[in-house]
């Protein structure tokens, strides 16, 4: 049979290919000069064809196994999926995030509407049952409220670093749950948004009832606006995933889902630095007694304005809005 002739004839090519792959792997692509690289690409094609031949004619032989391994290894090393690289940090800040944010504004607005609705619902419930808010603060807060103290007073400056780490980790976890929760067809995301809105509304109602709402609003004014924005943007990302999962239009669902995942990832990654910043604000500025309520409110509004400026960056309008994905080759960084 021709098996041994096939092996004898082609082994030098396979050996050369394996050797070049080994060197490319060991030194991350810098090991080969242009000529060798061209040879490698050429040999890859020959190995693939030999592999196809060996699989149909000499199935399960050692040679078929070796070619299977070489074909898989060569494909992994020589082929980059999608051919897309991560955008540079500047490009991400000036283009990728703003354009994704604007394109996915509908999903974010859905989250906003649900949040506002559930907030109003929470507030309305407290008009009937004033202590409904205790569901979220824990019953222990009631005693303090009756004495004119807020449960947030427990956050004092000497435990600030610990609180910052804990709050930051928790916020990122919640944001991530809202984001990844999109995979439950958006149900978990919607639940989290609803829960957070209901919590805020009813807690405001609770403090309103005890005439302490001023203190609460002062406490949340520095971090609240941005924190709500972060939860809504990440949940918007979750809804993007859910939408890709549910309505794939006329494309294969995996393709629609992958495109949605790209946008959702951009939204999440764009929020992470802000969430870290928020943790510091929430631990160091919000509980600080030395700062005036006006200053806290100003800080809160400034943070929110800064984020919106970043997210709605008008300069990103003229590029890449027309395409469904942000390709690095398009447009120029201003």
């Amino acid at each position: 049979m021709e098996y041994n002739r096939f092996v004898a004839l082609r082994t030098p090519i396979w050996d050369r290919f394996e050797d070049a792959l080994g060197r490319a792997q060991a030194r991350r692509g810098k090991a080969l000069d242009y000529g060798e690289l061209e040879q490698l690409a050429f040999d890859y094609r020959r190995v693939l064809h030999d592999y196809a031949l060996a699989r149909s004619r000499y199935a399960d032989t050692s040679t078929a196994r070796r070619l299977q391994r070489l074909a898989a290894l060569g494909t992994r090393l020589l082929q980059r999926d999608h051919g897309r690289r991560l955008p540079s940090l500047t490009r991400f800040v000036t283009h990728t995030f703003p354009s994704t944010f604007k394109r996915r504004l509908p999903e974010i607005l859905v989250a906003l509407c649900l949040f506002l609705g559930s907030g109003l619902l929470g507030l309305a419930i407290t008009f009937v049952y004033p202590n409904f808010g205790l569901v979220f603060t824990g019953p222990g807060a009631l005693e303090g409220l009756q004495e004119g103290r807020l449960w947030t007073d427990a956050l004092t400056e000497d435990i600030a670093p610990m609180a910052a780490a804990g709050i930051g980790a928790n916020n990122i976890r919640v944001a991530l749950m809202g984001w990844a929760g999109g995979l439950t067809a958006g149900l978990l995301t919607l639940y989290l948004v609803f829960y957070n809105g209901l919590m805020l509304g009813s807690v405001i109602g609770l403090t309103l009832h005890h005439s302490l709402v001023g203190g609460l609003l002062t406490f949340v004014s520095a971090h609240g606006p941005l924190e709500i924005s972060m939860i809504l943007v990440c949940s918007g990302g979750g809804l993007v995933l859910a939408r890709g999962l549910i309505t794939s239009d006329d494309r294969p669902r995996t393709v629609a889902l992958r495109e949605a995942a790209r946008d959702a990832l951009v939204l999440l990654v764009g929020c992470l630095p802000w969430l870290a910043l928020l943790a510091a604000v929430e631990a160091f500025i919000s509980p600080a007694v030395g700062l005036s309520p006006q200053l806290k409110l100003a800080i809160g509004l400034a943070l929110e304005a800064l984020f919106l400026l970043f997210a709605l960056n008008p300069q990103s309008m003229n590029t890449s809005m027309s395409t469904s994905s942000d390709r690095p080759t398009q447009g120029h960084t201003p």
Partner: peptide
């Protein structure tokens, strides 16, 4: 982990598949 065509996935792909691990632990 390889790409759907057998290639090397992008960094973004590695990030995505591991960020949803929270959900995948359940489903």
């Amino acid at each position: 982990t390889v790409g759907s065509a057998g290639g090397t996935p992008t960094t973004g792909a590695f990030l995505i598949r591991n960020l949803v691990r929270v959900i995948d632990l359940v489903v």
